[in-house]
């Protein structure tokens, strides 16, 4: 099984009448349970690649299969369901709902899966326990440190038992110690639960924690080091 399979992937944008080619033909396969980092300077196209892999966006051309499913065959609704079932997101700026408890933040993906409230909360509680936040269930994001917030976000990525976790600069807003902790969590997740991790970063030391480094530059894969 492969988590992602991309062939000839391109993505161009129209910016004030000018066509910008963010991705210019990417071939990439990421297998189940892999731990890969996508590296590149800003503007290299790594974020665009992550959005495509995360099914938040559609390629201009090329074929992308997520968990074996060709995304071009899915309408927006099915694509949303695919995201919900297969992919967990971790963002640089956490993206937690303010004024909502950690528990409810973590349970949110299950809301869209139609899971009943009791079960949702039980699963969210287990996910928070797994990231070491059993004592923070009813805290709101504003009552937690950045590191804790990112761990809540990781718990939210995990709660739906995804095949892949896409982490976009997950340590970008954290200090070294918290960054270290988050990376440790992602590694554990990968080794213990076999969840594939795709990490987008511009920091080589973070990328080096992954077992594979995919270097992106000018919309193309420059180097792929395993």
């Amino acid at each position: 099984m492969t988590a992602f399979e991309a062939a000839g992937l391109t993505r161009s944008y129209q910016l004030e009448g000018v066509t910008v080619d963010a991705l210019r033909g990417v071939d990439l396969t990421i297998g189940d349970g892999e731990f890969a980092a996508i590296l590149g300077p800003s503007g290299s196209g790594k974020s665009t690649l992550m959005h495509l892999l995360g099914c938040l966006d559609r390629p201009t051309s090329g074929v992308l299969k997520v968990g074996g499913v060709d995304v071009s065959t899915l309408d927006d609704t099915r694509l949303a369901e695919l995201r919900n079932q297969m992919i967990g997101f971790v963002f640089q700026s956490f993206h937690l709902l303010a004024r909502t408890s950690a528990l409810d933040n973590v349970a949110l993906p299950l809301v869209y899966r139609g899971v009943a409230k009791t079960e949702r909360r039980a699963r969210a509680r287990r996910a928070l326990e797994a990231v070491g936040l059993a004592h923070r269930l009813d805290h709101r994001p504003s009552q937690m440190s950045g590191g804790e917030q990112q761990r809540v976000a990781i718990a939210r990525a995990l709660v739906g038992d995804p095949q892949v976790v896409l982490a976009d600069e997950p340590t970008g807003n954290l200090d070294t110690r918290n960054g270290e902790e988050v990376m440790g969590l992602l590694e554990r997740l990968n080794t213990d639960q076999g969840v594939a991790i795709v990490l987008v970063t511009h920091e080589p030391e973070v990328a080096n924690r992954a077992r594979r480094q995919i270097h992106v530059r000018d919309g193309l894969i420059e180097r792929d080091v395993a």
Binding site: L56, R83, P109, G160
Partner: peptide, 9 residues
């Protein structure tokens, strides 16, 4: 965010 987490249109 909701859409990323699987909210449909």
């Amino acid at each position: 965010l909701r859409k990323a987490l699987g909210a449909r249109q």
